[in-house]
């Protein structure tokens, strides 16, 4: 489990990213990126595609390895050790653009696989543990269906429930609505808004600016692997400081 560093008022950040760089071959995906996220804080990261926003949050749970700089989550420093990666993954949930549900398992089995294997719950315990999460994302009646029988929005809500089932302290969202038909975006955003209201620490990579305005405590704009701007949502949307950010917002807010 995480050490209790990053609790409100202890002077530390829950997530502390310092000068992180990441190269894919010769492509500089992240250049000396620093970002702090406090306990219960909701951060929305936006920016053009290829700006490194997904890479940044994937570094937090080490789906990508960074080459330099440091990442600390709840007092645990990410190093090459399996122990640090496992400790952090145990506390960080992730939701993917393509849902990544397990297609050969039912909705309920998708939820209970983690708890039964990584937390050693029995099948019955895991079921009792999982059902409230399905109710929370409002699809308990789909428990015994297979992912392909659900709509995209429903699938993404199952994916959120699957993550929550592991009781993470931090949730990462990697463009959770980008693969959805427009009419299904809101049902997913509603679940995320509800989650934000419950006090979950969240980092969301998204272009849903309405959602960002509603829930974000902090907006981050990235471009070419750098954090260009970091601001409170009010300031961010009303008076972006950098030209690049202004340009980006003009483009996406027209729609």
């Amino acid at each position: 489990m995480l050490e209790n560093v990053g609790q409100p008022g202890d002077g530390h950040s829950l997530i502390d990213i310092k000068k992180v760089s990441k190269l894919f071959g010769t492509f500089h995906a992240l250049k000396d990126v620093s970002l702090e996220v406090g306990w219960g804080e909701r951060v929305v990261i936006c920016g053009p595609s290829g700006s490194g926003k997904s890479t940044l949050i994937r570094c937090i749970n080490q789906l990508e390895k960074h080459q330099s700089g440091s990442i600390t989550v709840g007092g645990i420093v990410l190093d090459d050790s399996k122990a640090s990666v496992n400790a952090i993954r145990a506390n960080v949930g992730m939701v993917f653009q393509q849902f990544n549900l397990f297609p050969h398992l039912t909705v309920l089995e998708n939820l209970t696989l983690g708890p039964t294997r990584a937390r050693n719950l029995t099948k019955t315990q895991a079921r009792d543990h999982a059902m409230p999460f399905l109710e929370r994302v409002k699809i308990p009646e789909q428990a015994d269906k297979y992912p392909r029988q659900l709509s995209g929005g429903q699938q993404q809500r199952v994916a959120i429930a699957r993550s929550l089932c592991m009781e993470p302290r931090i949730m990462l969202f990697d463009e959770p609505t980008s693969a959805l038909d427009p009419e299904m975006i809101n049902e997913v955003l509603d679940v995320m808004t509800e989650l934000a209201a419950s006090g979950m620490t969240m980092i969301c990579v998204t272009h849903e600016m309405g959602f960002a305005r509603r829930v974000a405590d902090k907006m981050v704009f990235m471009d070419h692997g750098e954090v260009v701007e970091e601001a409170k949502p009010d300031d961010f949307f009303k008076a972006p400081k950098s030209a690049r950010c202004r340009e980006f917002l003009e483009k996406i807010l027209q729609h």
Binding site: L63, R89, N100, F102, R117, A159, R162, M166
Partner: peptide, 26 residues
């Protein structure tokens, strides 16, 4: 798909569990 491994990792499954319950059955 690589996303299957990533989803398994993100819910803390070990390599052998990932293979046994997620990858091999598919």
């Amino acid at each position: 798909d690589r996303g299957q491994y990533e989803a398994a990792q993100s819910i803390s499954l070990s390599y052998s569990d990932t293979m046994r319950f997620v990858i091999l059955p598919q």
